[in-house]
Amino acid sequence: MVTDRRSEFEATLTRTAEARGQEAGAALQRASLLRDAIHRFIRNRAAVVAAVAFVVMVGFVILTPWLSHGSAYGVDFAQAYKSPSWAHPFGTDEFGRDLLVRTALGGRVSIAIGFAATIAIMIVGILYGAISGFAGGRIDDMLMRFLDALYGLPYLPFAIITLAIFGTVNFWTMVVALTIASWFTTARVMRGQIITLKENDYVRAANALGARWYRVLFRHLLPNTLGVILIFVFLELPGVVLGEAFLSFIGLGISPPKASWGTLAQDGYSAYEAHPYIIIIPSLAIAWLILSAFFVADGLRDALDPRTRET
């Protein structure tokens, strides 16, 4: 559920790198390439709707706790299990806590964990992939064999074991566990990007002019992967959010009274017979975030490589 979309992107992203390699020559041309990409993205209706939906969700999560006067932590048993109404648009939970505010606060945690883990995944994956692709030869071979070995493993058990090693579940241990479990694809894609870009004339020219390796890597290769990195941010984020929800749902979430969407869903599951809305709301919030992120990623890919559009 989490990895499949990324591996589908792998194939087309190599073409993206090639396309950029051919077009990204002079600085002037590159500016127009960027403008082209933005233009294409804006013309893509699904992508724009998804981007708006994504921003709306992030805005909801950030703003609601300030704007709403519902109480996220105050226990009031007289208000327990109220169905959605004007006073409590998302209803209340078993302690009478307002679910609108709790959903927003849970979303803050889920999305924050999502972004933190995504950034960590990017750093690890980019470093690993860039080293592997840039060094080539023996080192590349070794690193890739190692990655291949890790690749097929069930990622959730390893995330769970990581959490068991830490002994406690909090924001940062969750980030580490999710990162350990899911940096492989990014590393592999980055390696592919670097290898493809390395073949370009301007890299050869830089080498011929005597540029040091770090200049080639940081000046010529990495900047050209920014587009792909951006796409991968939007591909990793949903996976991480879903992973966090799974872990929370089986009882390895951050501890109450704090909540994430996963722990809210778990709360809802324990009362689904009488009050199904409690599990539906956080689940739909997760679905909303995942869908919008995927369509943004889709739109970004199409914007960066117009040739993938037809499929």
Partner: peptide, 12 residues
């Protein structure tokens, strides 16, 4: 299929 978590599907 990939957006809705399967705990929701199972519960529903």
């Amino acid at each position: 299929g990939y957006a809705i978590p399967n705990f929701l599907i199972a519960t529903l």
